[in-house]
Every structure is written in structure tokens, then in C-alpha cells.
Design a protein around this nucleic acid. Structure first.
Lengths: 253, 253
DNA sequence: CGTCCTGTTGAATAAAATCAACTACGGTGG
DNA sequence: CCACCGTAGTTGATTTTATTCAACAGGACG
């Protein structure tokens, strides 16, 4: 299987050395079974992960006993970056399915940030993209009804899985339990169940065990409170592919 | 007034050239009145902002007519980075109070990412910190009661304003209206009002017009669903202050 | 064959939203 | 100077949405 590098080359074109480094990550590849924790909140920070196959979710535990899943990671995603700013992990990373991941040590990231400006810029922009996605998720949970949240989530997953080549005829695997969907959207499992049933009855989706099919895409899109943002792509505002520009600290108002 | 650079030096020590660049930002300083938009969702991306004085909030509009404030920025914060990954702004930036800001053009950020590895690494980690904060906010909105959300928000503001030297005896200015607090926490203004009143009556806080005082800090902390995370600080996992290390793509499992 | 997990459904309950007044306040303009 | 208006805060009554509690069905798995 071709490693899913689409996320890394989205914003910048990598140098030969960059590519060599990324390929180097692959030697750490290993598989983990469903429900295994890659890390728990509070664990010391060892590094980050590159997900090759399967689904992973990042979650926070709250003192009131509830948990919030803050992100579902799909093949090609980089995991664990937020905790780099912390002395101990701020998020639990749990395999939702059997997965295949690579490990990248924190010092390796440090060296990369110092010596591989292209790759570093790519990671930087990729991180900003994650922030945008997180902001949108916050807007779903904070300001949308259960139906709107579910519609937005399904569209988000559809788009991201499509990029990874994991959608056929609008149908994709959905390995999350309804309880996990609830933790993700700030709803109870019971309410997720009722809402999914309603989406089904209204003809938006068809459900099977472990999968779902989007039947009425325009309908779902009109239900969703916002659409997945368009990203800038490699021809961004900065000529990161260009030669060495002047180092003057150019500033304008 | 000393410019609030505490956020920039939190993770890395800057080189002389880095510092020169940051000081260069200050020449773009300007003031804007309360309620002025720095940018609207959909505007073309010109660059990012460095907030010197006042409060700014970043928000998303939803199609259902509601809006979600995703972040309140305080003096010393860098604004607008997430939209660098987008062709058009993904967030509206609005001055909550009269403010003083600097502008940094997108190409300037691009050059910085290529040629100033220290500063770039500092911005990178600062961005990860923002992600952690956003993840926590998502957990409040998705999995906490109105009282818990308000307690967590007040503690967050207290801590951040304290760093900026804007707290005296537990009291700080709170220029947000109750409607804005509602948009921030995923509640209605009416419910924010009732909840604040309850926090007051229970002896956690004292309110005045435009300010609030935290009277029972331990009490509020026990109410909050999670505490502000500790950040790694300048002695992080990576020797960004050290000399040039080998460029080998070090990886471990 | 039993047990656990996941999904499903119903009934009762709780939390927050909605609707509607009303107050206080600051600014604006006559 | 004062009347007026819009904004922000407050409170009560009612409704909606989602939660909670409870029970049961189907499958997977040991």
C-alpha cells in the first residue's frame, strides 16, 4: 500500500532531503489492536505519531466524569502534536480500530524544525489547518442542534476519507460506536441513536453495521451549520518553493 | 508601556536577529476602536496580528444564525494564524475593547519560517499551545454544565490576564457582554446571566459593571471541569537553544 | 451457552432555550 | 437641559431539547 503522504505535501513541495526524512519515519511502523492506547493524558511526551492505517481518537477526561473526543484521526494524519508544548500529554490517543502507525521522537521534530524549513513550514501550516478544523468543531458543539452536528460530522468524515481513497459510492466504514459519536459531538449515545435514526428515516443516509452511506449529499449539506473550509494548497501566500529570498524583516500594514 | 513579548519567549530564547524582527513588527502599531472588525470571515488573507492592548475575539458565523466565539485574545497574543492555511479568512476578528495591534504580512511570516528557525519553532510551539487551549474549550462546551463552563472560563481568563499583569487582588476587567459570554460558551445570554448570579450568590465571585473579582479561587477550581494545563517552557524536549546538531533524521520507536 | 457490548426504544426528568417584560444606563440630538 | 433611543442586564413563565433511567434485542466472543 502507498503510504498516505497527501497531508504532508498539501502546502509545500518537499526537498529530496525532506522526503528522505519522511521515508525514515516508516521504519518505525508497527501495528496496534483496537482499543489500545497510544498514550494517556499525563504520560510523558515521547514524540508524535504518523497514522498509516485505521482510526484513532484523541480525547480529554473531565473531572465531572465525562469525556470529550476532540478529534478523530484518519490515515495520513499526524497525531500528538499539541502535547509537544506540554510537559505531560494533554490528550489520550486511543486506537478506534486496528491501526498501523509510525513514531517520530520529539528530538527528531526539534531537529526538523531547525534544519528543514520546507518540511517545518508544511507542518506549521498543517497545524493551522487542524486549528481551523477544531474551531469548526467547537462551533458545532457550541451552537448547533444534534441533527446539525451529526450532519456536519458526517460531511467532514466523508471529505477526509474521500481524500484518503476510502469512500465508494458515498459509503464508508464508520467504526465509531454511538457512544463515541456522542463523546465527539457532546451528546449522549441515546440521543445520537435517535438522531441517526431520524437522518435515516428522512432519507439523508442509509446505515449498516460499521458503515454508513450518504444518500442525499445536498440535503446533508443544507443541514450542516457550516461547510468544510477550502484550504490554500501549495500555491499559498508564501513562496516556500522559491529560492532563498532576502532575510529582511519585511513588514507592511 | 513594555510590549508584551512573554508569549514569544515562552518556549525558545530568541536570537539577536529574531528580536530585531519582532521589534520591527512594532512600527506597524495602530489603534482601533471598540467593535471594529480586524477582518471578517471570507476576507482575503493579508497576514496576522500581534495584540498589544485590549481584547479581541475570534468568531465563526453558522448558517443557523448563531455565532460561536472560538477564542478571546488578550494583550501579547498573536491573532489570525489559523487562516494562513486558507485562501480566505476562516474567522472574524473583532475588537471587544479599544485595542492596539501590529500587523505582520503573510510573506513576512513565510520568510520567517524559512530563515529564522528559532522564532519559527517558538511560533510552532505557541500554536500547539493554542490547540491545547482550544481542545479544552471544546471539552467545556461539549461536556460541562453552564456553571462548570463559566468557572473554567473565569479561571482561564484569570490565569492569562495575570501573566499580562492585568489582575489585582483577584479582580480584573471583563469587557465581554453576557451575550458575548454566551456565544463563547455555547449558552444564551439569559442563561449566562442566571449562572453568573448564582456564582455570585454562592460566594465564588463578586461582580461589578465591566469587572469581576474571584473571591473563592479554590472553590472555582473545584467547580471547573479541568484546570489550565502547565506548559513546557523554554527547557523543552528539544534543545532549540543549543548549537547546530547533526541533521540526521533521527527516529526512534 | 452465557456474558458483554452495541444498538434500540419508551417514559420521566432536567437543563437550557425561548419568549416577554422591565430596569438601568449612556449617548445623542432637539 | 432633557427627552429619546439603543444597549446591557435582570427576572419570570413557558417550551424545547436533550438527558437520565430502564428495559430489551441481536451479535460477538470466550
Amino acid at each position: 500500500m502507498q503510504p498516505p503522504f497527501h497531508g504532508l505535501t498539501e502546502f509545500v513541495s518537499l526537498s529530496a532531503q525532506d522526503i528522505e526524512i519522511v521515508r525514515g519515519w516508516l521504519v518505525t511502523r508497527r501495528t496496534l489492536p483496537r482499543a489500545r492506547m497510544l498514550r494517556r493524558e499525563g504520560d510523558p511526551i515521547t514524540g508524535v505519531f504518523f497514522l498509516l492505517e485505521g482510526w484513532v481518537c484523541a480525547s480529554l477526561m473531565l473531572r465531572n466524569g465525562r469525556r470529550q473526543i476532540v478529534k478523530v484521526y484518519l490515515p495520513g494524519d499526524l497525531l500528538g502534536f499539541p502535547s509537544l508544548a506540554l510537559p505531560a500529554a494533554g490528550e489520550t490517543l486511543e486506537a478506534v480500530t486496528n491501526i498501523s502507525v509510525c513514531t517520530i521522537s520529539a528530538p527528531a521534530i526539534g531537529k526538523l524544525l531547525q534544519h528543514q524549513p520546507r518540511l517545518a513550514a508544511g507542518l506549521f501550516l498543517s497545524t493551522q489547518k487542524e486549528r481551523v478544523a477544531l474551531m469548526q468543531k467547537l462551533s458545532w458543539v457550541g451552537a448547533a442542534s444534534a441533527m446539525e452536528r451529526l450532519a456536519a460530522l458526517l460531511l467532514d468524515l466523508l471529505g477526509r476519507l474521500d481524500v484518503a481513497g476510502l469512500v465508494r459510492d458515498g459509503r464508508f466504514d464508520l467504526p465509531l460506536t454511538q457512544a463515541q459519536l456522542g463523546d465527539l459531538l457532546g451528546l449522549t449515545a441515546v440521543h445520537v441513536n435517535r438522531t441517526l435514526k431520524r437522518l435515516d428515516q428522512l432519507g439523508y443516509v442509509v446505515r449498516g453495521k460499521g458503515w454508513i452511506r450518504i444518500v442525499d449529499l445536498p440535503g446533508l449539506e443544507s443541514l450542516a451549520p457550516n461547510l468544510p473550509p477550502q484550504f490554500a494548497g501549495p500555491v499559498a501566500w508564501t513562496r516556500l518553493g522559491g529560492g532563498l529570498a532576502s532575510q529582511s524583516h519585511e513588514v507592511d500594514g
